[in-house]
Write a protein that binds this DNA or RNA. Structure first.
Lengths: 137, 137
DNA sequence: TATGGGGCTTCCCATGATGGGAAGGTCAAG
DNA sequence: CTTGACCTTCCCATCATGGGAAGCCCCATA
């Protein structure tokens, strides 16, 4: 049996976050020693590692909870897991596309900017310019 | 002179956020009517629009403040603005790469998962598996 | 046995940017 | 004068994480 610091080291989840996950119900309450220290066995550490990896893949905590439930359910259909993973891929793609769009706009502006000692700057001009609604009335 | 709701509609920044920007010092305190309503002229609306667009390009508020300062400084060198824009592009690239990596891992897992009625699932196996440090000792 | 240091406990606060909502004042139209 | 839409300030919630204080516990060492 480990106490929280050891479980944190073994799982890659900080002690702070372990307590938080417990508080929010993502993981069940840990056992306690007579003096109140939380205790963790290999199984609990494995759960924490699971959570860590799911978070590393960008799943929000709500989806991590879903994954954990499927993990615990020996009778789940793998299709359900796959759906969650595909939804996460789609969510990542949305965010990636948003950021690619920002990047493209910035790249255009940077290209148009001399980037020298003079004050003329298309970047600021664009940010400060009047609203240019395409096909506006 | 407009009051805050009109300025919000004209700039695309919500009234809530306008007050927040003022509170945090991003924008100077608005004028007030005798009864305490905030007032905004075309210049202030332009500033708000500037902020909005910079935020839309993903700049954090701190960098927006830097951009605003450069915008106000008629003697700035465009090189400074360009540096900020390039840094923002770099920051976006970092985040994009992180998400691409997540997506790639998930895509691998999804490909390996049958996605049918059976419970066998490489995705859960991977999340719950022992730590497999590549090129480990 | 006493002591020191480090780890544990709970509780509160902060982040970054935004929204929601309550309680109360103001203004314009009727 | 009433009604309703708008404004004001103030507090709370998000999402996931970290920082820190006050106080208890445990182990090692003198």
């Amino acid at each position: 049996m480990m106490i929280i610091g050891e479980a944190a080291a073994a799982s890659g989840v900080s002690a702070k976050m372990i307590r938080y996950y417990e508080e929010t119900g993502l993981i069940p309450p840990a056992g306690r020693t007579a003096s109140g220290y939380r205790t963790y066995g290999p199984k609990e550490v494995q759960i924490l590692r699971f959570v860590r990896r799911a978070r590393d893949l960008g799943f929000p905590m709500e989806k991590v909870a879903d994954l954990l439930a499927l993990w615990r359910d020996r009778t789940r259909a793998s299709a359900e897991v796959r759906r969650l993973a595909e939804a996460q891929i789609a969510a990542l793609e949305v965010r990636i596309r948003e950021m690619e769009a920002m990047k493209a706009t910035l790249s255009h502006l940077v290209q148009a900017c001399a980037g020298d000692d003079r004050p003329d700057c298309p970047i600021l001009d664009e940010l400060g310019g009047s609203p240019c609604r395409s096909a506006g009335g």
